[in-house]
Amino acid sequence: MMNPFNPSISTPSGIWNPLVWILVFLLSLLIAYAIYLKGEKQRKKGMQEEIFLSGNKADGNTHIKASNIGWGYLEAMKGYYKLMRDIHTGIINDYVGWFLGVLATMLLIFLFWGGAQ
């Protein structure tokens, strides 16, 4: 019925086998290592091994605060997040109101577009 050493799951359009995936992953690691070994033996000193962050030289102790991560994304989605901030008021009356609103919508949908088969 179930073979523990063959953990494959057949999906509607294919098959998923984690063991095969792990084998392929290890193999690709080996290949990557082989390519790495073929690389330049001597690194050049100087600029190449220094760390830069947004064009500025970093001292190695730089830490980006959580609120600053994904700034570009948040800036691009400004309008959406403004709407979301307005919706998430934190007032308990609104929580109950949203619940009742969805309830009323569902009732109307089921009553007029048929809940029965």
């Binding site: 929580y95 949203w98 619940f99 969805v102 009732l107 009553l111 809940g115």
Partner: peptide, 28 residues
Amino acid sequence: GFSTMDIIAMALIVVTLAMKCGAVPMHY
């Protein structure tokens, strides 16, 4: 057969349990 009262009961139960499992827009 499925009556109107059943529809009301179904809406009450389904929406409430959806709220209890935290579905948007009742996730606050």
